[in-house]
Amino acid sequence: MTTTTTQRDSAPVAGGPAPALRPRRTVPWGKIAAWAAMVIFLLITLFPFYWMLRTALSSNNALATDPGSLLPVGLNTGGFERVFGLQDVETAISQGGSGASINFWRYLLNSVLVATTITVVQTFSCAMAAYAFSRLRWRGRDLVFMIFLGSLMIPQIFTLLPNFILIKNLGLVDTLLGIMLPTLFISSFAIFFLRQFFNNVSREVEEAALIDGASKARVFFTLILPISSAPLATLALLTYMTAWNEYFWSLMVSYTDQSRVLTVALGVFRAQAPGTGPDWSGLMAATLVAAAPMLILFALFAKKIVNSIGFSGIK
């Protein structure tokens, strides 16, 4: 009923044949409907985040009896305590946890190490390559660049199994290095992204430095890299996010706590459901804690990330 009214009313507002005659007081129904739709999308988008928090702060026993309440039920921090290993086994089991120990800090450390190393090394390695493709003169440059570009077409799945065998033969299964290696040095996307940017850096600055006697390597390190700090930071953030959220490859390579990253640990945590049913409160606390670093990082750099998503992101 309301929708029909809005649509009928919105027609003259949006596309009335004589806008000049339109009275200014007309309620912009079309706009209101559009905002209403936007709000609904936002609710769908954000509700799961709230639900994580609400469940994490509830107790499992209360959740079982009062699952429909929009506020936390049986308010307590037991879920978080189980995640951080602050609860003894009996309390954990009595509160619906599995009682199995989860070495959360270890997984967090592993995730941080993997994501940080990949981000630093990959960004640097790709920046150098992008510079070589953008500003250096050498034979075969365009051909080699086409090969790099072509590798964008290889889907991840195809390299996973052979890479696993390679890592296994190198004796690196269940090590952090094994998880990092395949993406440590290369992302064809990163090379392409940075090459686009370097292409647009003014040549005059560079020429001036060269005339002063600086080598091209020096120009790259002291001139090009600082000038490009904005796109480098954006790229680094996206790389960090990808590495942090990666699951499939880590699942293949890591078997024990020594190399288990957060995403894989979450999967294991979810699979260890006690006989009484999953420890939802603990699980939601764990997902929230696992997602928190990215959400915080995002909150700090939201503007940068949001504005970087555009054509550069798809070409």
Partner: peptide, 12 residues
């Protein structure tokens, strides 16, 4: 930024 939020968490 809010619209992008779900993309920040992992598939897991």
């Amino acid at each position: 930024s809010l619209v992008l939020a779900p993309y920040l968490v992992s598939n897991v």
